[in-house]
């Protein structure tokens, strides 16, 4: 697993995703306002709230109880950035202190000049990143005023060659898989470099067109399956069929 996937791991526990391979807790689809479970000892986690004795869904998704914690895994909706998210974005403007990056959210990201891996003259910023260039970066901080990005770290930086496309952001944890198992399977079977942003944007670069197209197809296949168990096995079959 490369550094980039480690970065994903820092804030998300992938062991809870359907691909885990282990016997996972039962998941049920819930709608907002629905009672998920009742009991004084339960802890309302992400996407839930407590009302008296009940834990109630605050959003649509898959409800899951692990130990005492009840939470909701989202299965749809727009991307909302959080600290440490890896995102793929596009340089949309250059200002005196850094680059404005469109990260496909309601607010642009800001990449400060000092995040450049080498010294850059303020007048030659487009030599490093020009408008329209694609980057992979990490969300450093989120505030109502700005979303600051960082680009130091393995796997982060300007994207050279290859191509980008988008999947549903809520499918990203599945596409990565537990400890990067799914993405590694795709890399092994196609020989492509793959970077997946939490904002749903994916970058692929391979040796030849056919493998690049196949890697994308594989990722789109996973992204469209909501909560299939044993997805890793299904993907192994898929690759066997799509040789």
């Amino acid at each position: 697993m490369n550094e980039l996937n480690k970065a994903h791991e820092e804030y998300e526990d992938f062991s809870s995703y359907p691909d885990s391979g282990t016997e996972s807790a039962t998941r049920t689809v819930v709608v907002p306002g629905e009672i998920i479970a009742s009991g004084e000892d339960l802890l309302p986690g992400e996407g839930t709230r407590r009302d008296g004795n009940d834990v109630i869904a605050s959003r649509f998704g898959l409800a899951e109880k692990v130990g005492r914690v009840v939470k909701i895994i989202s299965i749809s909706g727009a991307f909302v950035p959080r600290r440490n998210n890896v995102v793929i974005g596009r340089v949309s403007d250059i200002v005196h202190s850094g680059w404005i990056i469109d990260i496909d959210y309601a607010q642009n990201g800001f990449l400060p000049l000092m995040e450049s891996p080498r010294f850059i003259n303020k007048h030659e910023m487009d030599q490093f990143l020009a408008i329209g260039d694609m980057v992979s970066a990490k969300v450093w901080s989120v505030s109502p005023k700005s979303i600051d990005l960082a680009m130091k770290g393995k796997g982060l930086g300007k994207l050279e060659g290859g191509f980008t496309f988008r999947v549903n952001p809520s499918s990203v944890p599945r596409v990565i898989g537990r400890e990067g198992s799914m993405i590694n399977l795709i890399k092994e079977n196609t020989g492509c470099n793959v970077t997946i942003g939490q904002n749903g944007w994916v970058w692929i670069k391979g040796q030849d067109l056919d493998n690049e197209i196949k890697a994308r197809k594989a990722i789109e296949f996973i992204a469209e399956k909501f909560h299939v168990s044993g997805l890793t096995e299904k993907m192994e079959e898929w690759f066997a069929k799509n040789k």
């Binding site: 974005g89 596009r90 469109d102 496909d104 329209g132 994207l159 290859g162 191509f163």
Partner: peptide, 18 residues
């Protein structure tokens, strides 16, 4: 859904593919 247009990288890829 995305507000980001097809990237220039993807455009170049499509040129090669077509």
């Amino acid at each position: 859904m995305s507000s980001m247009n097809t990237s220039s990288l993807t455009q170049e890829m499509l040129v090669r593919m077509f």
